[in-house]
Structures are given as C-alpha cells and as structure tokens.
Design a protein around this nucleic acid. Structure first.
Lengths: 336, 336
DNA sequence: TGGTTAATTGAGAGCGCTTTCAAAATATTG
DNA sequence: CAATATTTTGAAAGCGCTCTCAATTAACCA
C-alpha cells in the first residue's frame, strides 16, 4: 500500500504490533490458536505497512518454494507453430494463479540442454513439482524424472510401464467418433493419416481401427499413411493417398488435416463431396479453414487445469497413489 | 551422479574435502583466490557426490533469486491464437537457459488478477527482474511497475513519457517499406487496415503515412479503416474498404491481412491483380496462405533474446540508464 | 634471515522466515 | 479455591547459503 523505504521483516511487524515474530508468522499462515484480538491487531499492522513476506525466506524455512515447473522437451521446434501450448499454458496459469503457485517454464532447445538442466531441476530445491508434456514416445526425460522423488504429472500419456500420474484426453474415443462419423456418412473407402511418434498418435490410430472393426469395414493398407502432426506432413501424406482413391480421410491432427485439405483442393477435388475430412484437436484455424474443418475437440485448457490440481494435491500429500485423469472429447461437426 | 540418500550441504562437501564451507562456496562461485590444488580437490568431491547447491538458500543469502518473470497482461485472451508468444518465449528461454536464469510466467486472466498479483511480484523478493509485454496502450501494469525499483524491460514500446528500457522492432520503418513496396508496384489507390489499440499499430500507421508523404501520394480518408489485429476484424475491415475500390491494402498485422484476404477472395477479386496485399509479422501461416502473403518480417525470437540480455545486464549493474533496442524488420516478397 | 606484503583460508554473523519447545496465561474441574 | 488441563505466546534453533573480517600461510625483498 504505502511505499516502503526499506524492506520490512517479520520482526518489524512484530515490534509494531507488540508481539513476537512467531506470532506474526502464525497469523500470516492462518494458524488456529490465536486470540482474535491479537490476530486483528497484527493484521492491521500488516495492511497498514503493506508488508509482504519474503518468499525466498519462507521457502528456505519451510522447504517448499511454491514453484512448479512446466517442462516442454525439445521437440518444441516442431510445435512452435502450434497454439496447443498457448492453451495449455493458459489453463495452467489460471489454476496456479488461483492456488498461489508460481509457474516456472523449462523449455529445452536441444537434447543436451535437456540433460543439463534436468539435473538442476531435480537437485536444487527450487521447484516443488513438475508438469511435463509427454510429446514423444522416446523421451529420456521421462526416465530421469521417475528416478527422482520430485512429484510430477504428465500431460499426455507417456510411454512407460510403471504407473504414474497423468492427465490425458480420450484419444481412442475421439478417433473412434471420427471414424464412426465418416462411416455414418456412408463412406466406405476410409483412409487415415496417422502418426506414430507419440502415444496420442498411437491411441488415435487404435480408436480408428476399433471403429472399423466394430462396423465390419475393411481398410486397404495403402490407405494408412504417416505424418508427423505438421501441416507439411499432412500435405505430403495426402498425396500418397490419392492413388488409393479414398472417399474419407481421418487425420490424427488438425494441422495434418489442414495440409491434406490443401492437397485435396490443389488436386481439384471437393471437400466433402469427393473426400470427407476429419481432423483432431479443434485448433482455432480449423474453424476458419475453407471449408471449416470437422474435427474432434479436445479440452486443452482443462488439461492444464487438471494437471495443476492433481500436482497440487500431490504436493499437499493429499494423494498417495498415481492417478490418471482422462478428459472427454467431442465431435465438432463442420463442413468437411 | 550418484543417487543421494540425503540432501548434501556445503558443510558436508567441506568436510569431505577437508576444507571449510566458505571455501567450497568460493569454488562453486568461481572466486579468484583459491589454490589450484584445493579447488581441484573440492571439485572432485562435488562431482563424485553429485552435489548441487540449494538455490533457495543461495537466493536468501545473496538476495538474488536468479528468477526473472515474463508478464503477459490479460489481453492475452485475444492473442491466444497468435504464435507470436510462442516465438517470444522461445527466444527468451533460449537466453535464460544460456545465462543460468530461471523464467517464471505471469499470465493474467483478468484486470483483478493483474492488480492482485502485481503486488506479490514487487514485494516478495521472488523475482529479480521483469520482462513485460506492452500489449495495449492503456496498461495499468506499466504505471505500477515503474513506481517500484524492480528492474524491468518492456517488449514493445509502452505508451509513457518517462524513459524506460525496452526492445522493439522497427515498426515505423516496416510499414514504410510495405507502403513503398505497394507504391513501387504502381499502385496509387492505397488503403490501410490499421489498429490504434497499441503503440505498434500507431507506429505502423505512422510509417505508412510517412511513405505516402514522401512519394506525394494522397490517401482517401475512406481508405483508412480500423481493426484489432484479429483475423475477424481484418475481414470486417476489408468489407468496409470495398466501396472505395482500393488497388493495394496494407494490413498492420498478418492476422488482419489473412482476414482481408478471405474477404477479397469471397468478393471474387484476385490477389494481387485486383488488390495487392501486404501484412506485418510474417507468421508461419502467412507463408502457407493462398496466395502466400507478402509481409514485413519481424524477428520475434530476437526480441526475446535481446530482452533477456538487456535485463540481465541491468541485474548485473552493468547498466545505468534506460536503454532502447530497436530490431530491424524486412520486407518478405511473396505472391500477394 | 627477519620483516613486509600479498594470497589463501576459516570462523561466524547474518539473510527472513518456520517451527519446536517450554513458559505464561487462561479455562476447567472436583 | 487449589489443582489440573488447555490455549496462547515467545525464545531460540535452525533452513543452507554468502560474505566480511581476521587469522594463517606463502611470497618477496633487503
């Protein structure tokens, strides 16, 4: 409130309120056993002086920094054009702000940096817990983190056998919905642009196949092609698909769907008349595409929210066993 | 290296190396006057034990946390689909990683949150310095931060009279280049989709006008319309422009240019034959647009890099007076 | 070789907070 | 009302590090 000439300390506040430093600490931390009259007096001084406790000192004494780290491994480069992270960060910060946590960002630009910085993450006591984006299947960071006793939550399902905590979206179900939608449209020459770099890609492929099985539809192996979630890869993948004359394509990501869309348009074909197209993600640009892209919406911000909440519970010891949270997805019908 | 059963402290290392805690601290912090033999012995122990100093304790003792904050005021919501921030963050983390700083993210979701959290930013000793994105002209955070003695650097030019440190791109020059390009193309019925919500918009408008003046070209006031940097606003703005029959449009942001592009296409006009279009930003999607968008490229990552470097210098007291860094932009010729 | 000066090291006092432990104050009971 | 149980408070010991200051040791010169 008032401009402070000098940094105030607990002792200063105590002196002003006529109590000991310990008592001030207690009212700040909402301890139960304090005379209401004393509590009030101390609080008055705190407000009047505009005192704010030194977080670093609090951290040292309590062995808890209140800082959690968001780790984005070095695959970022490929992902830099993807608003996914902005939404995730948005959800995360919303929640950290609400529960008084601080968010520190760990973005690695090389394998080397990843290894280097990991050590300082685990050992320096700066960070209470970690939210880690499970981008690739082969993520060395995954192995590192589970060997230490720092609490962590993955966003996305990592590729490991041991049970750990993560939040994820219903990828299998989403892909199932996509395929089912195409089938219900009467299409029978289904194709998929998949991606096997990450578990999300695997799960989406699985859901797609499941739907085909359930509806007793065969898929020509030629109609299964691969991309890497990028627009360019979707474009290229679609080229490979043309000779197989598909009448419906499911792309495991919106970016790939957008790439495919471009290839289809350039081939002089009409969406959805000649080829129906379904993506996965529901990025903002998908709604703006021409024609607007039918896709599977995943609640990215909720992913962030749930991740922080889960981690926070772990930090407060409220939770013992690893827990998995799967968020629902939905089919967004548009013109493709 | 080895799995630590218990957290090691400076004293432990000292005991193992047969020196005092102070000496260990000195070798960790690269102090000059230490016998090579002692330094080596201590370093050996550090490596063998895998000791990492407790950053919180270091911070408390040195009154320096090594954490800098990136503040993104609450206008973000409108900007969340904009990869600008991803690039900025990329540049920033690249540099913080390199110079051993930690990056903490402060993303506000409401005016209220902004005010609330500002206090804890300034007073809790957690953060050494701030990088602030100057999004809007009326940013209350700006006033708050300059009233405190926390070091800060703005990204983008804030709207205030007092001299402060910031990094920015040559907006005026960029817009000048854009207009000049259109003029050199032989166009004379120039129009602009501007934005007066932020200083970047102001500066770009200024550069545009400057070019018109220099080339003695009149502009019909009807051909000056406003948007808010979003695709939708560019689309709407372009509609307003059609009656004035422009043969060239400069949009103050790529997103608006993309919106305008859509409007032009839907009006059945050809880019660039009927209307030439130039944007500003060089977003990834601009290169992928159809036709690919001619635009002004701004080095967003460099903005982040320079911001961190500047702030770091301020933190190390290497710098006294506020400094401004203006990064160059370039015209990217594409098909529009 | 004794006397100076400079380089190297250790002791110890904090940094501002939390938290235990015991003392003081208050409430409860027979 | 004395004796006991219960709250409320303060003293003080850390948390793990930095950094000053003084002591020790090595280096230098006449």
């Amino acid at each position: 409130m008032n401009k402070q000439t000098k940094k105030l300390t607990l002792d200063d506040i105590g002196a002003l309120a006529g109590v000991s430093r310990a008592t001030v600490s207690r009212v700040i931390n909402d301890y139960p056993h304090i005379t209401p009259e004393v509590r009030e007096r101390v609080q008055k001084v705190i407000v009047e002086t505009g005192y704010k406790p030194n977080k670093i000192a609090q951290s040292l004494a309590s062995n808890r920094s209140g800082i959690i780290g968001l780790v984005i491994p070095h695959a970022v480069q490929t992902i830099l054009t993807n608003p996914y992270f902005l939404h995730l960060i948005n959800g995360i910060t919303q929640t950290t702000n609400a529960c008084g946590l601080n968010l520190s960002l760990f973005l690695f630009h090389s394998m080397n940096e990843e290894v280097q910085m990991a050590r300082s993450l685990f050992y320096t006591n700066l960070i209470d817990g970690l939210i880690i984006t499970a981008d690739r299947k082969e993520n060395p960071f995954v192995k590192q983190v589970i060997q230490h006793d720092i609490p962590f939550v993955f966003v996305g399902r990592p590729q490991i056998k041991v049970p750990i905590s993560y939040v994820n979206v219903a990828n299998v179900m989403g892909a199932y919905l996509a395929a089912e939608h195409l089938i219900n449209l009467g299409r029978r020459r289904l194709a998929i642009i998949m991606c096997d770099h990450n578990t999300a890609g695997d799960d989406r492929y699985k859901g797609f196949r499941q739907a085909l099985d359930d509806y007793h539809i065969e898929i020509d192996p030629q109609r299964i092609v691969r991309g890497d979630f990028s627009l360019e890869s979707g474009y290229v993948a679609m080229q490979q698909l043309f000779p197989t004359v598909p009448d419906a394509v499911f792309a495991a990501s919106d970016m790939m769907a957008l790439g495919a869309q471009r290839a289809i348009r350039q081939a002089g074909l009409i969406i959805p008349d000649d080829i129906a197209l379904v993506g996965f993600d529901d990025l903002p640009q998908s709604a703006l595409a021409e024609p607007p892209l039918t896709t599977i919406r995943q609640p990215i911000e909720d992913l962030g929210i749930e991740a922080v909440n889960l981690l926070n519970e772990m930090l407060c010891q409220k939770i013992g066993l690893p827990r998995q949270i799967i968020l629902p997805v939905e089919l967004v019908l548009r013109a493709s």
